[in-house]
Write a protein that binds this DNA or RNA. Structure first.
Length: 351
DNA sequence: CACTCGTGGGG
DNA sequence: TCCCCAAGAGT
């Protein structure tokens, strides 16, 4: 089993920048970026990150806003916050050396069982198993698993553990992920060129398209949001920094909130800015309307120009509030949906 | 342990 | 247009 896969990997495996190094720091960064994120998306972020933060010391010493700015657009921002925290732990508790004991690695924020296995096998060739989305699919098909992988995690972990070869774990784990990413794909798996076609139970029973089984999810709720681009007399705009925990934690945004049933957008904006920032505004023209989908809900951002009438902005439901010039907006990390607002503001500003 | 947490791409 | 999914972890 191993040798078949390893032989395939040596010929067909992907060449990826984090496979050119054995620096556990660089491999760690790649593993975190690759959580729930495709290789193509990660590549430019990975290169820029290592330019900005070449070592764990650079990362530990950076301020969080710089870290979040480097992560801007990648999503799941807790990954960046945890990466930053973990770097500080490695400097303070491990003398700047990435730990090599599994228990020490999984103890770092943002690193679970799969990521720990990925790092330790890739960086140190330790025979530890992994179980990411690719491996779940490959192994589920290998044994023709008749239930969703989430219901059989123990069994899949045992199988992954049993398969890792003692002396070639690095290549084997990478090969397993490549197989899932390029051959044993969700749609149109290329079974005819698969090195594991012969032992694959799903292929032999011709059920590879039905495995892994998926559980259905409820339809996403849709929220209407009122958003304010508040201008003051100096042609500055008001932005606020979201709390550390929760959605988009630590990122900046344009203030606003959920429109209550039957409420007009203008009323929502005036109410939210009073509740969250204790300021009075006059709501003007609509700037832009943005539809955006998050993992668990959809939003429509109804963005309106506003004029600041009175009250010094207070950080009541956020961590910080600032007035900033249009030209300075790009220095702050914003969520993707807010990026469209910034573009719209710039178009107004030049005209 | 079910839920939360982004974004881009494919069918 | 809409659903599903992609190198998961934290709570």
């Amino acid at each position: 089993m191993h040798q078949t896969l390893l032989a395939w990997y040596r010929q067909q495996g992907r060449q990826l920048p984090w496979r050119e190094t054995r620096d556990p720091y660089a491999i760690w960064i790649s593993e975190i970026m690759l959580q729930q994120t495709q290789v193509k998306t990660v590549l430019p972020y990975y290169q820029r990150w290592l330019q900005l933060f070449p070592t764990v010391y650079d990362l530990a010493a950076a301020d969080q806003q710089t870290v979040l700015k480097a992560w801007e657009g990648l999503g799941y921002y807790a990954r960046a916050r945890n990466l930053h925290k973990a770097a500080q732990v490695i400097v303070a508790q491990h003398q700047g050396q990435f730990p090599e004991q599994f228990e020490d690695v999984v103890a770092l924020p943002g690193i679970g069982r799969t990521t720990a296995g990925g790092i330790l096998s890739a960086a140190f060739n330790q025979p530890v198993p992994i179980l990411d989305g690719n491996v779940k699919r490959v192994l589920a098909r290998l044994i023709a698993l008749r239930q969703p992988p989430s219901k059989a995690l123990d069994q899949l972990w045992q199988l992954s553990t049993a398969l890792v070869p003692p002396r070639e774990a690095r290549d084997f784990n990478q090969a397993l992920m490549d197989l899932g990413a390029t051959v044993c794909t969700r749609h149109r798996p290329a079974c005819l060129i698969c090195p594991w076609r012969s032992p694959c139970a799903a292929y032999n029973q011709n059920v590879q398209l039905e495995i892994p089984m998926t559980e259905t999810r409820a339809p996403l709720p849709h929220k209407q949001i009122g958003v304010a681009v508040v201008w003051n007399e100096q042609r500055q705009i008001l932005i606020d920094r979201r709390p550390q925990s929760g959605l988009l934690g630590g990122l900046w945004e344009f203030p606003g909130g959920k429109i209550e049933p039957g409420e007009a957008v203008e009323d929502c904006i005036r109410r939210e800015l009073q509740e969250e920032l204790a300021i009075d505004v006059e709501v003007g023209d609509r700037l832009i309307t943005i539809d955006h989908t998050y993992t668990h809900f959809k939003v429509t951002l109804n963005v309106f120009h506003c004029r600041h009438i009175g009250g010094k902005p207070q950080p009541i439901e956020c961590d910080e509030v600032r007035w900033v010039a249009v030209s300075d907006l790009e220095q702050f990390p914003f969520p993707k949906a807010n990026g469209q607002i910034i573009e719209a503001i710039k178009e107004i500003a030049v005209s």
